[in-house]
Every structure is written in structure tokens, then in C-alpha cells.
């Protein structure tokens, strides 16, 4: 079957089997490997992407069900070489070690800040409660999101960061 969707702002169309899960469609058909594939049982949350602005676990959504919808992955967070404040926050506050949970964490955090620009510690922990991090103990993730909330306009270009 044919599916079409908006992926990180770009219209895409692909021919797929109906049983293809959104996470595999994103990684294998589109080559966007920033979305990670973890537990495969909708527990760990590393596969979270935004569908119409809402975080969803892409291991438990068919690509066919995303047909006609707007999907945003971690690759869509930075725009025109400028990091999203969430990404910058994870850098500033060491919100990751191994990085496996990071794409899902950042997208859930993005959706949280879109709905609630000034969340408190409890609200952040609630928002990411369906996602597992085995490195940080969550403390630095929470601080990263708080950093992003405090720096909504803090924009740094990727090139500068890489150069620095």
C-alpha cells in the first residue's frame, strides 16, 4: 500500500506492507536512524516521535496509521542549523550519557514545553514517566528540560558548537 505523510516538514510517499511499524518505516524506509528502536513493547519510550504534535511510541503505531499525518522525529528538532532549546538543554545539563533514550526524551520534552512552557519538576517527571533511562537517574534530564524552559530563545548554531 502507499502511504504519504509529512516527515519533519517534508511531504513523503512510500510503498510499504501494511504491517510495517512506524519506527521501522522511519529508520529503514526513510533512513532516519535518530529514532531509536528499543523494547518493542511500548514500555521504554526511546522510539517516541511526535504525531500531529503529540508524543507517540512509534513501535506501537503502524506506518499506515500515520498516513496523512504530520510526523516529527529528532532530526526535525534543529531547524536551519539551529538547535532546539531542548537539545541545547541536554548539552548544557548533561541530559545523556549513552544517548539511547535521548531522542524520545527530547521529543516528549518538546511536546511538554509546547503545551506547558514552565513545567515544574513533578510535571517533567510525569511527562517522561513512560520512558526509561538507565544512565542518568533522570535528574539531569529533568534539569535539561528546566534549562530549555528557562531559555526558550537561547539558540545556538550547530556549526558553532561543533567548532567549539
Amino acid at each position: 500500500m502507499q502511504v504519504s505523510m509529512t516527515m519533519n516538514g517534508e511531504e513523503i510517499t512510500r510503498e510499504i506492507e501494511p504491517r510495517v511499524l512506524l519506527v521501522h518505516f522511519i529508520r529503514e524506509n526513510l533512513g532516519l536512524t535518530g529514532t531509536h528502536w528499543g523494547c518493542d513493547t511500548s514500555n521504554c519510550g526511546t522510539c517516541v516521535v511526535l504525531m500531529d504534535g503529540q508524543p507517540v511510541k512509534s513501535c506501537t503505531v503502524l506506518a499506515a496509521m500515520a498516513d496523512g499525518h504530520d510526523v516529527r522525529t529528532v532530526e526535525g528538532l534543529a531547524t536551519a542549523g539551529v538547535l532546539d532549546p531542548i537539545q541545547q538543554g541536554f548539552m548544557e545539563e548533561h541530559g545523556l550519557q549513552c544517548g539511547f533514550c535521548t531522542p524520545g526524551m527530547m521529543l516528549t520534552a518538546r511536546a511538554l514545553l509546547d503545551a506547558n512552557p514552565h513545567p515544574n519538576d513533578t510535571e517533567i517527571r510525569e511527562a517522561i514517566s513512560g520512558q526509561i533511562c538507565r544512565c542518568t537517574g533522570y535528574a539531569t534530564i529533568v534539569r535539561s528540560v528546566l534549562w530549555a524552559a528557562e531559555h526558550p530563545a537561547e539558540l545556538v548554531t550547530i556549526d558553532e558548537e561543533v567548532g567549539a
Partner: peptide, 9 residues
Amino acid sequence: IADPVVRNR
């Protein structure tokens, strides 16, 4: 019920 992300669907 489940977690906030699952509750979205």
C-alpha cells in the same frame, strides 16, 4: 493507566 505517551493513543 499506562503512561502519558500511551494515553495519547
